[in-house]
């Protein structure tokens, strides 16, 4: 053995370091295996996270104390100024809310619903950021709310300007949030201007997201707003995520290189919002796959693909039987005139 001679084995001191190391190595590998496969150690982690929380609070205490001092010694003038600013902001928000109510009602009328939809966010919880980890491999936050406050794994986290991330590990009094900029995190997004759906992957930098799956000819420009697309089952539809800052198209590469900057202040936030969504709301994240029990709309309002095929009735091959169009499904009874008309038109090319 290369290492032999350094350690003097003496009787009565228990097993040799080699034996002990083997023991601990086997223990570590078993731990890793159990943790990696199927989360067998979920309970152990919960306990360990609870045990670690006091230390994390101690770490944060100097910063918290400094903040408290700063706030208590703020001058009258500064407070007045802040008050003024908040008043102005409040006025502006009130004005917008007045308009918002009217818009919600109008939207509901347009959708043909008798009542306005309930708000998408059912309730929310303000959580204070306890610890921040912003390295190139991990972008995480620790917040001071946990399972005792009803926080669950995979919960959406936002701040006042955009999407922050989702909860990853939940302890009794704390939760670890994986930020959208973590290299292991991907969020399904949509370019608001064009509706193109893609995926935004974290770039390991609190100011950058990458959009690696956009083809080089995709319609994307600098300044485009990215919103959540509502796919994936965690985030609802339509929440602002990021703004595109850089689009590079290389003639050799089949994919465009697109970077975006998150709208949320991921590296500045002191508080974030944990949100619960109204499950019945159409924009809510769909956790279960959509099955056949969708509510049937007014058939007259459905698109009529057969009518669009009318100008070229002499090419029967393109139309086929038209079985892909929902209105021509033979199992649907031709109850309304609209469907009857569609069926009639479709018979023409055959």
């Amino acid at each position: 053995m290369a290492f032999a001679g350094g350690y003097r084995p003496s009787p009565g001191r228990g097993p040799s370091p080699g034996f002990r190391f083997t023991l601990y190595a086997v223990l570590s590998i078993t731990c890793m295996f159990l943790d990696q496969r199927g989360g067998w150690l979920e309970k152990a982690r919960y306990v360990l996270q609870a045990a670690a929380y006091p230390i994390q609070l101690v770490v944060r205490s100097p910063a918290a104390a400094w903040r408290w001092l700063e706030e208590s010694f703020e001058t009258r003038a500064a407070l007045r100024e802040e008050n003024e600013r908040l008043r102005a902001q409040n006025r502006e928000l009130m004005l917008r809310t007045v308009r918002y109510d009217a818009l919600v009602r109008e939207n509901a009328q347009l959708r043909g619903l008798t009542e306005a939809l309930p708000p998408l966010i059912e309730r929310w919880l303000v959580a204070e950021v306890v610890n921040v980890e912003l390295s190139s491999l991990r972008q995480r936050l620790l917040v001071n709310k946990g399972a005792q406050n009803g926080v669950f794994k995979g919960q959406a986290v936002i701040d006042e300007s955009g999407l922050v991330g989702q909860t990853m590990r939940v302890g009794p009094w704390s939760a670890e949030i994986i930020l959208i900029t973590d290299p292991e995190h991907a969020v399904p997004v949509q370019i608001e201007r064009t509706g193109v759906r893609t995926i935004a992957v974290g770039a390991g930098d609190a100011r950058a997201l990458a959009l690696p799956y956009l083809p080089a000819n995709a319609d994307v420009r600098e300044g485009d707003l990215l919103v959540t697309s509502g796919l994936g089952g965690v985030f609802p539809h339509g929440y602002p995520v990021a703004r595109v800052t850089e689009v590079r198209r290389d003639a050799v590469q089949p994919l465009a290189q697109v970077r975006a900057t998150p709208l949320a202040g991921l590296d500045r936030d002191r508080e974030v919002l944990l949100v619960w969504f109204e499950e019945t709301h159409p924009a809510a994240p769909s956790s279960a796959p959509v099955s056949g029990d969708l509510p049937a709309g007014d058939p007259a309002a459905q698109p009529q693909p057969a009518i669009r095929r009318e100008p070229r009735p002499e090419t029967p091959a393109t139309g086929g039987s038209g079985s892909f169009s929902p209105t021509s499904d033979p199992t649907v009874p031709a109850a309304t005139p609209a469907i009857a008309r569609t069926a009639a038109v479709q018979e023409v090319p055959q």
């Binding site: 002990r20 223990l27 570590s28 731990c31 890793m32 990696q36 150690l41 360990l48 995480r140």
Partner: peptide
């Protein structure tokens, strides 16, 4: 636990170096 890595990862590495 603090870094949220796979349980046992740093434990194995540090046990080896300590050994």
């Amino acid at each position: 636990v603090f870094e949220g890595t796979v349980l046992g990862q740093h434990a194995l590495a540090l046990s080896f170096v300590t050994y």
